[in-house]
Design a protein around this nucleic acid. Sequence first.
DNA 1: GATGAATGAGCATTCATTCAT
DNA 2: GATGAATGAATGCTCATTCAT
Lengths: 213, 213, 213, 213
Amino acid sequence: MEEAIMDYNQKQLQILDTAERLFAMHGFHGASVRDIAQEADVNIAMISYYFGSKERLIEAIFLKRVMDVKNGLDELVKNKDLAPLEKINKLIELFVAKISDRPYFCRIMVRAQATQEGVPTELIHEVKKQMYDLVKKLITEGQKKGAFLGDIDTMMMVNTLVGTSNHVIISQNFLKKVWNQEAISEEKFRQQLKERVSNHLKKLFKVVLTDER
Amino acid sequence: MEEAIMDYNQKQLQILDTAERLFAMHGFHGASVRDIAQEADVNIAMISYYFGSKERLIEAIFLKRVMDVKNGLDELVKNKDLAPLEKINKLIELFVAKISDRPYFCRIMVRAQATQEGVPTELIHEVKKQMYDLVKKLITEGQKKGAFLGDIDTMMMVNTLVGTSNHVIISQNFLKKVWNQEAISEEKFRQQLKERVSNHLKKLFKVVLTDER
Amino acid sequence: MEEAIMDYNQKQLQILDTAERLFAMHGFHGASVRDIAQEADVNIAMISYYFGSKERLIEAIFLKRVMDVKNGLDELVKNKDLAPLEKINKLIELFVAKISDRPYFCRIMVRAQATQEGVPTELIHEVKKQMYDLVKKLITEGQKKGAFLGDIDTMMMVNTLVGTSNHVIISQNFLKKVWNQEAISEEKFRQQLKERVSNHLKKLFKVVLTDER
Amino acid sequence: MEEAIMDYNQKQLQILDTAERLFAMHGFHGASVRDIAQEADVNIAMISYYFGSKERLIEAIFLKRVMDVKNGLDELVKNKDLAPLEKINKLIELFVAKISDRPYFCRIMVRAQATQEGVPTELIHEVKKQMYDLVKKLITEGQKKGAFLGDIDTMMMVNTLVGTSNHVIISQNFLKKVWNQEAISEEKFRQQLKERVSNHLKKLFKVVLTDER
DNA sequence: GATGAATGAGCATTCATTCAT
DNA sequence: GATGAATGAATGCTCATTCAT
């Protein structure tokens, strides 16, 4: 199934990208199929033709992106040679990179969690559960090896990881303004932000999980 | 201006409450004035009549709630007798309590930050700026008094505070499911969650800001 | 219920009349709400506003007309002073008059029987059943009084009454052409036709039901 | 022209049969070419490809079936050895058999007479005219031979023949229900109905046209 | 000859808002 | 002040048909 989903043609990809952006900017109901079709430079009927309906369109977006995240997590799990804290750091880097590179989808995802507006809740819960389980596993491993302290609220650590990352990404326009960085390029700022939030979270996890500073 | 806002009559309050809930659940465009009017048990025309338009309605909701938060922050600032860390703890408690008690508005706020859908961006930025400035001030004070460590990314600490809190609140349905707590009452679960995220954030700030554990 | 249905305002009646005509001429799916609204000289949104949907519009038409027929039949039943054949004649006159005066609805009714296209089947079956039962009753009464012969296929007599009447009404444009009567006024032709089919059916029933000619 | 029409290939016949059924059930506009193509298990484009358009498709159906009826009538005319009433009986049998065997087409035909929805009116009028002329000829012959009475409304007798037959066929589902015959097979019921309406019409014509009972 | 891809036009319906009362 | 009636605009979607291959 997963493979079949991915082989979209050029027009389908145009639609998916444009829809992702517009859903992120205006919400599911705020972005009309007309607008999407127009900005993607395709006939309006093509969206129904290719995806069946507006709902199935946003589902396709989720499927496409979520699979990406899931695959990334799976890969991390396989890597057995890293020290516990290094694994955590790797996870933070990976997660921040993923949502930092897909700020539009990050917005959609945040909205989707906040509300239920034409969104595949099941899929979201599934990938969130996987994330929770993975972090729990990494921390428990670290504790068994004596590398991590015992008294950790794993669940809340995940909420901090996800919540902080999401919040930084969706607030980046605000942050750019607050930091008087409006002069620098979008790309450069995003890169700085990615590193900054990444380092911040690494430090946070380090001081919480271990005795070191 | 601010005073005038607060004296709403019964029907206006019904509208504001219902609208807050429906905007939170379905998004700005997903909640129609018809639905709001019907659930609030008022005539459709009353919404335009009282608030001018759908956009001005959500603005009124923001104004009403945001003033609340601002006033809370102001009060905190005045209190001069507390130790630096106690002030931080107070802030965390206050912030978590505010959004925990207004989960619908929290959802609207998160959506509003993620996107621009008929939302008073200026107002949001203003209150966020105030929050940043306050935290910065509290941390700088603590550093001057030698209570806090020197190397702190203040901005990111705020993002962690806000991001984690928001994320926990908007994901509470998911968390309830994951923790197999679906049996206990909504109210009790929310109370537990409030304390848990509060404690988690207090610990986080403590280990980051000070040498103690 | 029945009374409530009947108090339509002017615009609603315009819509009902126009819709009846257009549904008759082009079928349910062939007549668009746009066309109906335009010809009825009302805003397109009014149809949904007043009747809820296209389906509920045609249901309203059926309800309005069918009640008419049912009421007519009920009245006939009450009249006890007539001779058996005179009752039959009265029924024929009544039925032919009803569908002759409502040729558009007659067409809709015929279409509705032939197919299922957005039509309240239950209502139709109910009124047809009532018609069958009434004729059966009249013939049985006549037989008991010795006025009618014994060997009568009642059901088929009803089919002849209804089938012939319907067919004449829906074919009237064709008949007018065949009979080279295209010069005379629509109204006059319809009057002639009404009498002719009425007399024809009366004769038919007379020779079948009795010994006389 | 007529000969060319008849040599359809397998796929064309599938389309014609499916279209006849769907047009009968949902009306011309209610049956989409998509549905027809899907149920006939052919590519959507084939309908336009083979028949040019949806309108020309229903024309083809009419042409195919109407030719059938016309040929049947022609055959009857040639047979010179029968008595007048026997000819009438033969006609009734033939007509009832034709529409009884093609209930879907009967429905289409009835709808087509009731309205104008993408239907070859000319063709219908032509075959109806032929029917009228034939009956007129048969009755006039019978009158000349002294077998039939003089005072006959030929036109109305045709309307009774056609109207009654059509009405019985299109109402057969209703009749089956009314007569509590829902247990017996479709095929058997249709056979019974055919004989019953046939006998009914024969009796009707006999008592009207002659002195006998 | 046959068909998958594509499309402009049209569909029924709902939208937020206005206005006369 | 308050509201039922009304509306133009926009919604997501399906339509019959065309066209390049």
